[in-house]
Design a binder for these strands. Structure first.
Length: 322
DNA sequence: AAACCGGGGCC
DNA sequence: GGCCCAGGTTT
């Protein structure tokens, strides 16, 4: 049972629903579960989260990715507390930071039983197959939305929109899987035009993606006499916004010049390869031990909260030092 | 409408 | 190596 779902008979906690939905944006359930548990443990209520220092929240989010979500999470928590609770309307939810059309519908249906069908990747796939929508995404979105709205007219959806939405998620995550759907045991098989046409497994169709460019850079891992490492903070917006990082070069299509931040016995610790949404990064890691960190760097523990890219770089830079 | 924004697991 | 994911914000 997913930890944010209501136990039998009870209504789900809107705070739990909201937090889980934000974490689940473009992130798979298995990845979210441990983060969700740590957040609920440290911030039992939305008021606890709203009162927390930004850095505590960013640190607890480190490794989950899409860090704008964490910044919006903080802003949203504070707005909700200021308003006295979560709004129970789609428009009210949609107006909050980090909540778009999908998330407003998901929270509305699951937490407040509003009669809407949230269209995520799972529901998009289920609807495209049931309606045999062959128009490729994103152009096919409107057609898929009409099929989803038709699903919402189903008696089960009218009776319990929240349960129906989660049942659609579960269907998309299990029987109606992306690659080899289990149509023969699907409860919707008789109503599925995609299955009838023999094209269910090929839906939804998607426009071809642009190739992912490669960028290169170098980072420098400095370890002082106390075993602390030198970090700096990234700009508040943009890629890995507001997170800590190892000092280094810009990331460019050709390897930039890489003057070290100080004189030291630098060694080449290897190359970290990390794939972002829109480019692949090959980051050379240079490492050295020094008596004291240079001006401009913050001393941090080797297990300080970091984005996964920087965690990999630190790990590579520390390798073989002991 | 298109670009930007992480990370991990699966085939 | 490509594809997928319980998308939102900015331009």
């Amino acid at each position: 049972m997913l930890p944010w779902r209501a136990t039998d008979g009870g209504r789900p906690d809107p705070y739990h629903v909201w937090l889980s939905e934000i974490m689940l944006q473009q992130t798979v359930v298995a990845t979210v579960i441990p983060y969700f548990g740590r957040f609920i443990e440290r911030y039992p209520t939305v008021a606890d989260l709203a009162a927390a220092p930004d850095d505590d929240v960013l640190g607890l989010w480190a490794g989950l990715g899409y860090y704008a979500r964490a910044r919006n999470l903080i802003a949203c928590a504070r707005a909700v507390v200021a308003a006295g609770g979560f709004p129970a309307t789609i428009d009210g939810l949609r107006a909050l930071p980090g909540i778009g059309a999908y998330t407003a519908a998901a929270i509305g249906a699951i937490a407040f039983d509003l009669p809407v069908v949230p269209i995520d990747g799972n529901v998009e796939r289920v609807a495209a197959r049931i309606g045999a929508v062959t128009t490729a995404l994103p152009a096919g979105k409107a057609e898929i939305a009409r099929v989803a709205a038709w699903l919402g007219e189903h008696a089960a959806a009218r009776a319990a929109p929240g349960d129906f939405a989660q049942a659609l998620f579960d269907l998309g995550a299990s029987l109606c899987a992306p690659r080899s759907p289990s149509c023969l045991v699907c409860p919707w098989r008789g109503d599925c035009a995609g299955h009838a046409a023999g094209i269910a497994a090929t839906l939804p169709r998607k426009a071809a993606r642009a190739p992912r460019p490669v960028r290169f850079g170098t980072v420098f891992l400095l370890r002082d006499a106390d075993g602390a490492i030198g970090l700096r903070r990234r700009p508040p917006k943009g890629l890995l916004g507001g997170m800590m990082e190892l000092p280094g070069t810009v990331w460019e299509a050709a390897m930039p010049d890489a003057p070290p931040p100080m004189r030291a016995a630098w060694r080449d610790a290897g190359v970290v390869v990390h794939v972002f949404t829109h480019f692949e990064l090959r980051l050379r890691v240079m490492a050295a031990e020094v008596a004291a960190l240079p001006e401009g760097l913050v001393a941090a523990a080797v297990d300080a909260p970091l984005p996964s890219l920087m965690r990999k770089a630190v790990s590579m830079g520390l390798g073989g030092l002991d």
